[in-house]
Every structure is written in C-alpha cells, then in structure tokens.
Amino acid sequence: MNVFRLVGDLSHLLAIIILLLKIWKTRSCAGVSGKSQILFSLVFITRYLDLFTNFISVYNSVMKIIYLVTSLGTVYLMYFKFKATYDSNHDTFRIEFLVVPVGGLSFLVNHDFTPLEILWTFSIYLESVAILPQLFMISKTGEAETITSHYLFALGSYRALYIVNWVYRYYTEGFFDLIAIVAGCVQTILYCDFFYLYITKVLKGKQLKLPA
C-alpha cells in the first residue's frame, strides 16, 4: 500500500458517499445516471468475487464490502425508493454498446484464461467506460448540480491517483499490470474535459454548464 493508492481509495469512497448522501438527503436522483450506477455495481460484483476466497488484508476486504453495499444501495435508491425522481428521459445511453464489446475484449485480452481472471478483466475494462452514461446525460441536460460535479471530480481523481500509484509501484516493486494501467488511463482521459470545466467553473462558484 502507498499513499497514492490510499488517497485514491478514499477519494473513490468519498465519491460514492457524496452520491449516496445527495440522493438520500434530497430524496431525489435528478441528474444522476442510473445506468452508470448499474455499471459500477456490475464492476464491483465481477471484480470482488474473490472476496471470500482470497484474503489480502482487513482493509482490502472491508473496502470491497463497503463498495459493494453502497453501490447496490445507490442502485436500489434510484430504481426503487426514489424511482419517481429518476430522469429516464435523459439517461438514454445504450449500455449494451459498452457491456458487449468490453465482454468480448475481456475474453481476448487477459492475463489468464480462467473464469475469475476473465471476470476481473471484464470489470477493469467496464470500469474505464462506466462513467460514459453519466457524462452523456450531463451533455444532454447541458448542466449538472454542483454536488454531482463534486461526485464526478472525486470519482475521476481516484483513478488518476491510481495511475500515480502504478508508477510508484513500478519503480519501487517492479510491479505493473498493463491491463489495469491502460484501462485506468482511458478512464482518466474520459474525465479530462469535465476536470477542465470543474476547475474553471465549479471552483469559482459557478454552475457547471456545458457549452451548448
């Protein structure tokens, strides 16, 4: 464990908590893409299947459980409890266009042709594009609530910090995982235009509005 990965994990946890609190407190999931949340739940389920068979550390197991519970809880809030506030008219990204290619790629490019490893690879590839429905929804509505932009900033920062963690681990342990690194770079690049808008607008107290 290194400080970059720890801060990255905490940033990820912060993002998930921000979103959960936003939905719970405002009793509304307006502006939030339920499809992205479903994809994130799928990412955690397929990645953490080894939760009980492969103990790494208490921290690792506890965080996996927290991610699973909070992401499924968010999906529950969006599609059941506060379903009436779910904006399905703007959340129209065809996620099968993500899941099918990612599923195919995980069979073709992986470290080990075993079920657990293929599902882990699927999860890594899926996570890199899972935010697309959310970004697509914001581009359709043309704006995002400030709290949602904080959520996205924390979420985008987590994988950016993981990239620093991979550089650090390469030089200190000689560890590198090309699949995770390439997918992590794609994932972080997808946030770049949002990062620009967040830093130039939201941090100056303006509403996040995408150029129409």
Partner: peptide, 10 residues
C-alpha cells in the same frame, strides 16, 4: 510481467 498475483488492488 505482472507480479503481485493475486490482484491486491481494489
């Protein structure tokens, strides 16, 4: 080469 199997990152 991928070391540190199994996956020890979240």
């Amino acid at each position: 080469r991928v070391l540190g199997k199994p996956h020890d990152e979240l």
